[in-house]
Structure formats: C-alpha cells, structure tokens
Design a protein around this nucleic acid. Sequence first.
DNA 1: ATTACTTTTGCAACCAAGTTGCATTAAGTA
DNA 2: TACTTAATGCAACTTGGTTGCAAAAGTAAT
Lengths: 125, 125
Amino acid sequence: MGVIRKTKSVETLLAIFENNKDAVSAVQLIDLLKEKMNKTTIYRILERLQNDGIVHSFMDKDGLKWYATCHGCSAKQHIDIHPHFQCQNCGKVDCLSVDIKIPMIPNRQINFSQVLLIGKCESCL
Amino acid sequence: MGVIRKTKSVETLLAIFENNKDAVSAVQLIDLLKEKMNKTTIYRILERLQNDGIVHSFMDKDGLKWYATCHGCSAKQHIDIHPHFQCQNCGKVDCLSVDIKIPMIPNRQINFSQVLLIGKCESCL
DNA sequence: ATTACTTTTGCAACCAAGTTGCATTAAGTA
DNA sequence: TACTTAATGCAACTTGGTTGCAAAAGTAAT
C-alpha cells in the first residue's frame, strides 16, 4: 500500500472534491482536466483516494464510474454507504443522505449495497 | 415499434431465459452462443425482448449489463422492479424477491431504482 | 408456391471507458 | 545534494457495446 504523496495532481483532484457536493464522473474529470493531467493519472489517483477512504465510487445507470467525497471513512473501511440519485434527463448524479433499509437475505452474506434512484432532478422537472 | 418475429435466434434466447432463474450477463450469452449467432444479434434481440417486457436489464458492480426474465411486465411498462444480488467472489447474479422501500426524496421525481446487494453467495461462503 | 414487403442477421468497422507496461519525473528523506 | 520510491505521461491495448449496410429470412397476400 503506497503512501499518498501530495503531488500537484492530487491537490487538484482533492480541491475539486472539496468544492463539490455532487458526485463527479471519471469522464467529466478527464474532460475537465485534460490540459492538466493524463487520464491514466486521474484513474490512478482516484483509486488511491478511494483506498484511503477519501472518496467512494459507484456505477451509474449507464455503467460509468462516478466518485464522491466520503464522510467518516478511512483506509480500513468504507462506512459511508448511501443511495445515489441520477437524473435521466441531464445525467447529473448526487449523493442522498437518506437511510435505506437493506433486508436480510437468507443464505447470503451482504457486505455492501449500491442503490441508484433514477428520475428527474429539480432543474429538469 | 417492430413486431418480434419468431426467428431461431429469438427462440434460442427465450429458451435460455425460461430455463434460468438467475440473471445472465450479455458477456455470458455472447460466449455461450458464439457458435450460433453474432454478438450484435444478441444485443439487438435482448433490446427487443426488453422493449416487450419479457426481460429486464441492469448493471452489475463492474458496469456490465445483465438480463433476467420479467414477471408481470409488458411492452407498456416494467413493473417487476426488485433488488439484485451479486457475489463478489464468483460474480453470479440473481434476482431477489424482496421489497425495498424507496423513500420520498424532496424536489425530485423518482421513476425507478436499481438496487444491487453485494456479498457472498451460498456456495462461496 | 411465388411474390412483395419488412424485419432480422452477419460482418466489419468503429467507439468509448478503462487498463497496462515502461521509461521519465518528481516527492520525501537522510 | 543525492538517494530511493512513488507518481506521471504516453502509447498501445483490452473490452463491452454500437453502427451502417448488404444479404438473408419471416410474414402475409396472391
């Protein structure tokens, strides 16, 4: 497990997550930062941030990867599990701070869950 | 909206879904049927079956597309919404017949949801 | 059956997201 | 300053899925 060095690229990405309550997709980041860093670098930094409990990732309705800031997570474990919402009109995704009850499933061990609610956001209604 | 013709390829796919309670991924189908039909054909038939309410599709934890038989759906609407379970060890996915309560979210219109529970299946425990 | 019409299929080429290998560069440390 | 190791850029690659188009196969009427 490599140590995370505070490189310019890492700072740049951290700044984006700090100023952003919504989730951000890898594709958006690659486009946003295409002048500043390579897409490989972006993917690799995101992976490190995730391993360190700083961000979490999830898949959207189209199978694209999104990232958002974690709250209360660490390298040891991700405890900040919550549903995400995606607007089927504009594609925007955000984290929802509601609690979803995951039922017990017989004969299976549930470790975590991905809940994606799909609909229309406020500005697309 | 084209009529679905009962071609050999369609029959083959329908037979697979009939004999299969679990979900099947597009990749699995392509591999399974690689001697019998083209992958383009598989994707197109799956799309038609979905439009007709015969199967439903969803994304797994890695962003791959999975399909499973619908119950009580039609071309008009998909009412068979339920969570799915994926084993993080063997990758198998199945449909769960439990009801998950989706909370009201202020200022948003929720149209449907994708719930994926991730853990270990019976044979991988 | 034959014809005419429309859907379906195969193929090849393509696209986009994400990954890998490797040489180079930049952090952290003594 | 020099050393060690992590981080980066680049190009090439992998993979899941899509598109355009000509050829083949369903379907229904004659």
